[in-house]
């Protein structure tokens, strides 16, 4: 099949970018979208032009490294990751526009590659249960209702790709943050730090410069793992409860 590609090219974070158009006349419908870009890149190298930089790694839809805003949608027309998208989802002769994720908190590194370390920093703010290695109770000591475990798993499936931010007209990261807050709010293991976690992760999210949620549900519609916005509602609950009721306890010093 023949396709025309309009791809965002940008040398570095502080450089000005623009679209460049490429023609490709030997794409196959069985190619994945990223394989099509591989072919384009190898053609470019042979022609002495610098290839297009894009993020990718596992190519089986789980690592969350691939991105790309394709024809106005994160990860393209299907609700899956770009690496799982195949060219048969496009028609012969189509013009495909490829842009990077656009968000203040995701600065462009080069071409289609953006910096998503803001997500890591949000997780570092509280996306964990504070247990050290060893000295934990037996795995079956605390039963977890199957339903709760399943719901926690639904939230835990987030791959951290950032499609929610890319899809949201406000570049809001709430689906991402709420997925982690939800997972731990549901499970008994997450209870001891439940309040602090919600407070800290939301504060970090705001500090990173993500927008506010206006409940358009675009994130949910585009999330390749089908994370639901009920998680955002749960995060909101957790956050308000924490801010309204949680307080510091001053521990007495000494004792050794």
């Amino acid at each position: 099949m023949k396709i025309t590609l309009k791809i965002w090219r940008q040398k570095g974070t502080n450089d000005k970018g623009s679209f460049k158009t490429y023609k490709m006349d030997h794409a196959s419908p069985d190619m994945s979208f990223l394989e099509m870009l591989d072919v384009l890149n190898n053609d470019l190298v042979r022609k002495g032009e610098e290839p297009v930089a894009f993020d990718h790694d596992c190519r089986e839809g789980i690592c969350g490294m691939c991105s790309l805003y394709i024809n106005g949608r994160p990860h393209g027309p299907l609700q899956t990751t770009t690496c799982q998208l195949h060219m048969r989802s496009f028609s012969d002769g189509e013009t495909i526009t490829i842009e990077p994720w656009r968000a203040k908190a995701f600065p462009i590194i080069k071409d289609l590659v953006v910096d998503r370390t803001a997500f890591d920093r949000i997780q570092q703010a509280g996306g964990y249960v504070s247990v050290n290695t060893g000295g934990v109770p037996d795995a079956n000591e605390i039963p977890v209702p199957k339903k709760i475990a399943d719901e926690a798993m639904d939230a835990a499936q987030c791959i951290g790709c950032g499609a929610c931010v890319a899809a949201c007209k406000n570049a809001s990261a709430m689906l991402f943050v709420s997925a982690k807050v939800s997972q731990f709010a549901l499970l008994p293991q997450g209870q001891p730090e439940r309040m602090e976690r919600a407070e800290k992760m939301v504060a970090r999210m705001d500090a990173e410069g993500f927008g506010a949620c206006t409940n358009t549900r675009a994130c949910e519609a585009e999330c390749p793992k089908g994370i639901k916005i009920t998680n955002i509602a749960r995060m909101n609950r957790e956050y308000f409860a924490a801010m309204l009721t949680n307080y510091e306890v001053e521990a007495g010093a000494g004792g050794d």
Partner: peptide
Amino acid sequence: DQCVAQGVPFAREYGG
């Protein structure tokens, strides 16, 4: 044990 304590949502039976 370690993974469960970290909040890894392993599959569970109805009894929890």
